[in-house]
Structures are given as C-alpha cells and as structure tokens.
Nucleic acid binder design. Sequence first.
RNA 1: GCUGUGGUGGUGUAGGGGUUAGCACGGCAGAUUGUGGUUCUGCCAGCCCGGGUUCAAUUCCCGGCCACGGCCCCA
Length: 447
Amino acid sequence: MVQRPRGTRDFGPKEMQRRLAFESLLEEQARRHGFSRIQTPIFESLDLFTAKSGPGVVSQLYAFKDKGERDLTLRPELTAPVMRMVAEELRNETKPLRLSYFGQCFRYEEFKKGRYREFFQYGVELIGATGPLVEAEVIALAINMLSESGLKNWELRIGHVGVLKQALSGIGLSASAESGEPPIASAMRFLDKGDFKGLEALLSGQGISSDYIQPLQQLSALEGGQETIAQAREILSSIEGVSLEALEALETTLTSITHLAPSPPSLSVNLTVARGLDYYTGTVFEVHVPELGGEGQVLGGGSYRLLHLFGLEDLDPCCGFGLGFDRVLLALEAQAAAENRKEVVPGESDTLGLLAVIPFNIDTTSVLGMVGELRNHGERVELELRSRKIGKALNWANNIGAAYAMVIGPRDIEQGKASIKRLSDGEQVETQLNSSSVLEALQQLRS
RNA sequence: GCUGUGGUGGUGUAGGGGUUAGCACGGCAGAUUGUGGUUCUGCCAGCCCGGGUUCAAUUCCCGGCCACGGCCCCA
C-alpha cells in the first residue's frame, strides 16, 4: 500500500476539529489586536530563502526545478514570504501593517517529537513601526494567545540583543570586519555558548583588557524577573562608555507588557536570548514548555531587519513571532491527558447537538425539504442514507455522536407528526413534520 | 550528523522455526418488518519489504522502509 511520505501526517475528523478550534482561537486573538490574516504561496523562489538564511539552507529544503527550469522550493518558514509580499504587494498600504498568517511549512530534516517535515506555523508581523511599544504589542499578543489556549506552565524568556552588543562595542569591539565574522558577532556567539575562554582569546586578540570578562559573564548569567534590569544597569554602569539605551528600551517593553496582557506563568529576563540569528536587532523572546522535553520551544520572535533585502530599509526593523502550532497542540494534549481532561482546546467541541434524521420505510425525498430548512436555521442535521432498520439506525445515530434522533416512518407521514428523541436519556418530544415545529421541539429538549 | 527501542487484521495486542496465527475493540449482517447504547450468532480483515540461514521463516540473521525516543542542529 502507498503510505504517506515520511515526516507528514494525516488529520482525521476529530483531530481536525481540534485544530480548527485552535486556529480560530489564535485568529480571534490576532483580530482583537488589530492583525489581519494574509496568505502566501506554498512554494516560492529558492532565492527568497537563500537571501535570508544563506546558501546552506538548501540542504534542508524541499527544493526543485519547475518545467521552466526555475529554482523553486516549498517554503520552510513564513517570515520571508511575508516580507516578500509586503515588498511586492503592500507598499502602498497605510503603515504600520499588522499581519497574521497560518500555514504549513516544509523542512527536509529528521523529524522528532513535535517536529515534522510538514509542520504548521501561526505567526504575526508588525511592519513599519519600531520601538519598545511595538515589541510590547507583539509580545502581549503572544501572551494572550497562549493564555487563551489554556496552556499551562509555559515559560517566557525575554532578552534584548542590543544590551550585550552595546556593552561589547562599549569596550571597543567592532561591529564590522573586512573579512569573516565581525568581532562583536563572535563575542555574542561565545557568550551564547558560555565559552569564556574563547571570549578571552578574542579580547586579547583585539588588544582589549580581560578585566571586562567578569562583568560580561555576570551580564550573561543574569536571569530573573523585572529586577534583572536593575542588576544589569548596575553592571553596565561599571563599564565606562557603555550605552544604556537598549536596556532602557527593554525596560519600557517589559513595563508596557504588564499593562497589555495577563502575567504569564513564568517570565524571565535573560540577555543571552539571542536566538543565534544575526538579523535580530532588538528585543527577542521565546516560550518553552517543559512537558515537551528537548523540543520544548513553542514560540519565538523578536525585532529583526529583513526588509532591507527587498529595498525597504526604511521599514526595518519589524517585529513578529512564529508559533509552533503542532507543538502547542502537543503540549495542550499532554497537559489535558495528565489532568484527565477531555477538552484539549477551549471550545473545541460542538455546542450545538447534531440531529440525526432517520427516514424509515418512506421515500426519503419527502423529508429533504425539512432537512434543508433546518440547516438553513443553523441546525446541524445528518440524514441516514443507508436505509437501516430502526434499531441499527439509532445505533448509527449514537455512533456518529448525534444528540437527537428523529425517526420518520409511514405512520408519521400519514399523521404529519413525529417525535424527536434526546439520545442521552431517551426523552421524547412530539413535533409536527415541519421545520418550525421541529425547531421548537429541539428548543424544548435543550432547555 | 550520532544513537536507543520497536514493526502481527482498521485499532490495541497474544504467540511462536512446521499452528485452521489466538483475543479484544471496530465495521457489516442476523436474532428483532416502528425506537438505540446490553446480550447472542455469523461474516469482514493481519504476520512491513528484500536478501540470507534452513527440508521448512511471520518467528533466527543482515539490509531497507516505517514508527517512537535521546543527543547535535534548528531560518
């Protein structure tokens, strides 16, 4: 038998209902924050991603040539396509833009728990405005989304790549190099990995005193709540010539968030949240869920510079985040299972009970009109289509999860009435064979 | 890139060098030609693929594929 390709998944009706509920929950939060949904193609020019991430990414892409020999690839992420779209389609729109998106991405790599070759990402980008308030708006949205999803125990870590950068340039490291990696970038990498020996070698190579190692080490070791800012300020003030601008911006962001969003279960400030990417410029943040183990990051984002790649440097930097749709769902499922809770995503189950209409020994076409009208009134109605006998038909109604069943046989047609049965307890209500009477009967059974 | 465990009907499993490959759930049908979730009966449907060892392999060995984990990486 032909199987589904490695690293992909099928989603059955039950699973899809949950996924749709989760998506609309996220969408609703985005909408409340003024974000509008967009969609970009599932494949793009290969250049789009090599421009952003370098030629090395190709090995992890589903890249191919089309019949016109064009180099294309299934998209591995959504930020670059959105930036492309902004440059191509949205230049004339009033700024700032608040865009949200959801869709599948593809990466050719070994898949793990919560990591598939085809995966789903929900994300937002706020484009055309910069600064602590922009970052606070974006992070507040992230917090609201996770909070509304019912996720527990998640940990938000916030940092600002500018703090360490300003410290490093304050002690005399350069942000540019004639060839190879700029000294500041190298130093950031060493700090990120905790490699202080490497840092020491770098400093001495640049003729900079190793006295600075200790405060830098202290800075990168900082981790905690809002009070971390004060500690960082103290350390930075001890180094001559270091700008406090980034730290103050971070502080403003943090304060603003507390007004805009509920407090997350855990929030920590950590100045080494650098996300390893050189296009991040300001506040960076990520969310982990301990239940997921090694693949525990469910959300990540920050302020970044990418639009200059499309000739729109005046719109840089932007701020956004990507949310790992599959991972959050996995975490929610794990938490629900641990608590023996049935509902995984708030509002995932249908509130309106399904009505099974069972024609019995009659010409089914005679009830179609009523079925159609009930559906027009918003009822969920499923018609028995296999001419089952009564007992089997009711069994069928149970199995499909119907809340109510209505058997309509020759006698009912003759008398123009039938009864609707509430399947949970067998309670029955008489009704005429017309939609308004059925609606009343359903109303009665629901109250 | 490294590495651990495993693959038996649609699902969950038992077994084991020669078996009619067992059980449960499920689906379909009947008992029951107008009211269900119980019960009984029947039917449906399976040893991942390739190679090797053997008189004989679903069972043992090797490889592949697939699944689930742990590291590395992660736009």
